[in-house]
């Protein structure tokens, strides 16, 4: 099993922490994992993105250049990352903020209104969790329960209420169907 993932969005949309969460969840399932951020100048103000690898074999490169799955949380990310998805791969689009449609026909596309769903649950801060839920549900690469467990490990100082909302968002996202 090998899953290379890129998550991209505006700084503040939680794409970096969503990536860490995936990696942590993969570790909890005894997989080999890596997480790598686009760091530095890119990080300040503009778009943020990170690479995550979850694999049963050794992780070779932590920089995922041909992702199996791409999660785009904002408009600019679609243009940047759509071309990278492996043929047959999965593109998860936050349709609350992304209006354009992907041009490629050789990939699976899931439209998830992450912000809308998150808002219905309580706060748009957890839009990233909706996307992760969708990822877990659509690929089966990780269980929602494991990601929920990883939440406690990654956000050690988070309030229990907040964690609960995150889990709700994950579960709601996991209901996504293509």
């Amino acid at each position: 099993m090998y899953q290379g993932i890129r998550i991209s969005g505006f700084g503040g949309q939680g794409v970096i922490s969503a990536g860490i969460l995936l990696a942590q969840a993969g570790l909890l399932e005894n997989k080999n994992v890596s997480w790598f951020p686009a760091y530095g100048a890119e990080m300040r103000g503009g778009t943020a993105n990170c690479s995550v690898v979850i694999a049963s074999e050794e992780v070779s490169s932590p920089v995922v250049s041909r992702p199996d799955t791409v999660i785009v949380m904002n408009e600019p990310s679609l243009a940047k990352f759509e071309p990278l998805v492996k043929p047959g791969g999965l593109l998860i689009i936050n349709s609350s903020l992304v209006n354009s449609k992907p041009k490629r026909t050789d990939i699976k596309v899931a439209y998830v209104p992450c912000n809308k769903i998150a808002e219905e649950i309580g706060t748009t801060k957890i839009a990233n969790m909706v996307a992760l839920g969708a990822y877990a549900g659509l690929t089966g690469a990780l269980s929602v329960d494991t990601i929920a467990k990883a939440l406690g490990k990654v956000f050690k100082r988070a309030k229990p209420e907040m964690l609960e909302l995150n889990v709700k968002a994950l579960k709601k996202g996991a209901e996504t169907k293509i």
Binding site: I20, A23, L27, N32, V33, S34, W35, F36, P37, Y39, V59, P62, V63
Partner: peptide, 8 residues
């Protein structure tokens, strides 16, 4: 990369 990446 080695400095910035996360791994177990």
């Amino acid at each position: 990369i080695l400095g910035q990446m996360m791994e177990p």
